[in-house]
């Protein structure tokens, strides 16, 4: 079965995170991962690079510093928006 963008993003985060905290999909999507120590600054760089590479997109400065980027649900929205714009 083809994975959704959401599942792909969650897989990437779980793969990269060294946190002991095992969170379910719902919590992981809604939690402010930057505030909760889910990832450190090294992982953030890896996360951005992996998402950009896997989806063939490039986040803008505004997207990275936006409130939307602070939850994984928001990150997924930004990824989807970038992908939609590519199709135009």
């Amino acid at each position: 079965m083809k994975k959704t963008i959401q599942q792909k993003v969650l897989d990437i985060i779980r793969d990269l995170s060294r946190s002991e905290k095992k969170l379910d999909d719902h919590t992981l999507l809604s939690v402010k991962y930057l505030d909760e120590g889910i990832i450190d600054s090294f992982t953030l760089v890896e996360m951005i690079a992996t998402l950009e590479q896997r989806f063939g997109i490039k986040f803008s400065a505004g997207e990275l510093t936006s409130q939307t980027f602070r939850t994984l649900a928001g990150v997924i929205t930004i990824v989807e928006k970038n992908l939609a714009e590519q199709k135009k």
């Binding site: 930057l34 120590g37 600054s41 990275l64 510093t65």
Partner: peptide, 12 residues
């Protein structure tokens, strides 16, 4: 500290 959040808003 140099957390992911601090890194993102560093220059700001």
């Amino acid at each position: 500290g140099f957390t992911a959040d601090v890194a993102l808003r560093f220059w700001e």
